[in-house]
Design a binder for these strands. Structure first.
Length: 493
RNA sequence: GUUCCCAUCGUCUAGGGGCCUAGGACACCUCCCUUUCACGGAGGAUACAGGGGUUCAAAUCCCCUUGGGAACGCCA
């Protein structure tokens, strides 16, 4: 297991642009990124867009934007703005590397390690069903596997189309490798049938381009999700056939949903972009997912990417799957949020407040005070909306939960006195001390105390009897606004 | 079905033969702080899937069982 790390580490994250970046992909990217940084190597972004039907430019744009937002930047791949190739081993989009794959396929074909297969979909389907009935694995048994290349070429010449399959016949042995996270893994060669290398339209298939590219791009370590573990056998066969050096593999456990199933785009919908919309910070996402399958040697939980790089080690990667727990994730986001400077938090909540068309004071001192007052009540950035609403005159409404308080005997007197005292105040805003003083005066002149005192005032300030401390809230609301609200509350009695 | 992978509190995990009466974190419960709700602080409850070995000693090593997951495509 303690395989030495080659002098120059090169790793890659290879998404297929067929959807958005989800947390599973983000974690794979993160681990690769951390591994590269830790070992002073290179992190490469390769685009696996050989599925022409499903790959889209928008999706690529989205995945790239999400990676940039997460600050997982690559040394080679596509330029984040232009999406044009950057780096010495390009192109980095597989759809643009077809000539390369074709060359390799031809070599394999020429050496009899691959063959053209002309089985139709129907024939394939029939074979699969028969195998299933017989209790055999559903592998192809192609009658074309022993055709001489020349004969196949002539067959194509006259208009037939075929796929190129890798020939597994004669490979009867176990393929063994040492997985960076699982230790020794052993596959019997008959676990797979003759698999497709090139489709009938000439487009290569994942397992093939993955090997070709990893080799040509000098990838030293392949850290990927566990779902790829069985693919490793096919890939090892190709490496062997080409006589290429096999990189180190590490298969990381899957991120699971609440039902312990692989997080899927259909069900989980844990897209990074969506989490951003929900008010999560990039730093919190990274921190949370890094802990899904890895742990800091000192047990540290809240950390920066810099901390992760310092401490990262594949030997601490956990082979068991992990459930994505949104509750802990939210807590972690709150911790990251609180650690930020107030001005930064203010900046981050702007898109959310603007979405609600809130009009808040422009004064930076006011903004700073407001963040200081609210940040411990914020778990995600969207929480700012409910927190700031009371400060926005337009959204002052008396809520049903305030009705009872308004019915209390002392309420009218408390509110009247409160309004009058505020009206007499000389400046636009009350300080905390000034508020407490006024509250005290209301108490003395009305005789109301305890909740009979502060609940009515709170209703007159935020429209409901529970919420943020008044001494924090009141200094954030202009005097005229306080008076208007008190009037409104009085009118509702 | 076949092959492969996995298995410690509800969840994320520490642990890698004796330091384990199993540690931490989230969540939960209790108390304190608080003229509300939070924040914060102090406590608490909760786990080695089961069975066999190996060993003076097993959460830790081996085997079996069970349970879970993944893969078996002209998807990646």
């Amino acid at each position: 297991m303690a395989s030495q790390i080659s002098p120059h580490v090169r790793v890659r994250f290879a998404p297929s642009p067929t959807g958005y970046l989800h947390v599973g992909g983000a974690r794979t990217a993160l681990y690769n990124y951390l591994f590269a940084k830790k070992n002073k190597g290179e992190f490469i972004l390769r685009i696996e867009d050989t599925d022409e039907a499903r790959s889209t430019e928008e999706s690529l744009r989205g995945v790239v934007d999400d990676l940039v937002w997460l600050n997982l930047l690559w040394a080679e791949g596509v330029n984040p703005q232009t999406l044009q190739d950057v780096g010495p081993h390009g192109p980095y989009r597989q759809s643009q590397r077809q000539g390369i794959y074709k060359e390799v396929a031809e070599k394999l074909l020429g050496e009899g390690k691959a063959y053209y297969c002309f089985l139709t979909d129907e024939e394939l389907e029939k074979q699969r069903e028969e195998a299933k009935l017989a209790g055999r694995p559903p592998q192809v048994n192609s009658p074309y596997q022993d055709w001489p290349l020349q004969k196949a070429l002539e067959h194509i010449q006259v208009g037939n189309k075929g796929v190129v399959r890798f020939k597994t016949k004669g490979l009867a042995k176990d393929y063994i490798f040492t997985d960076l996270v699982r230790g020794e893994v052993r596959f019997p060669s008959d676990m797979v049938g003759d698999f497709v290398l090139l489709r009938s339209d000439g487009m290569p298939v994942y397992n093939f381009c993955c090997v070709v590219d990893d080799h040509l791009m000098k990838i030293t370590h392949v850290l990927r999700a566990e779902e790829h573990l069985p693919n490793t056998l096919r890939q090892m066969m190709i490496y062997e056939a080409m006589n290429w050096e096999i990189p180190q593999f590490g298969h990381m456990a899957l991120i699971l949903d609440e039902d312990r199933q692989k997080l899927s785009k259909r069900k989980g919908a844990v897209a990074c972009g969506q989490l951003k919309e929900e008010g999560y910070l990039a730093s919190a996402i990274l921190n949370f997912i890094v802990l899904l399958g890895w742990s800091h040697p000192e047990g540290t939980e809240i950390m920066t990417v810099e901390d992760m790089i310092q401490a990262f080690d594949v030997s601490r990667l956990n082979p068991a799957g992990a459930i994505f727990d949104r509750v802990k994730f939210k807590w972690m986001n709150a911790m990251h949020l609180r650690a930020l400077p107030h001005a930064e938090i203010w900046k981050l909540i702007q898109p959310f407040l603007q979405r609600e068309k809130m009009e808040l004071p422009q004064d930076p001192a006011w903004q700073e005070r407001s963040v200081a007052a609210f940040k411990t009540s914020m778990e995600t950035l969207v929480d700012a909306i409910e927190l700031y609403k009371p400060l926005n005159d337009k959204s002052y409404v008396i809520l049903p939960e305030a009705e009872e308080t308004l019915k209390w005997d002392p309420t009218r007197a408390v509110l009247t006195t409160w309004r009058d005292l505020v009206a007499k105040h000389p400046t636009d805003y009350l300080t905390e001390e000034e508020f407490l003083k006024i509250q005290d005066e209301v108490k003395n002149s009305t005789g109301a105390k305890g909740k009979n005192l502060f609940m009515p005032i709170r209703v007159a300030v935020i429209g409901k009897p529970h919420g943020t401390e008044l001494k924090i809230l009141v200094p954030l609301i202009a005097k005229n606004s306080l008076i208007a609200r008190a009037e409104q509350a009085l009118a509702a009695i």
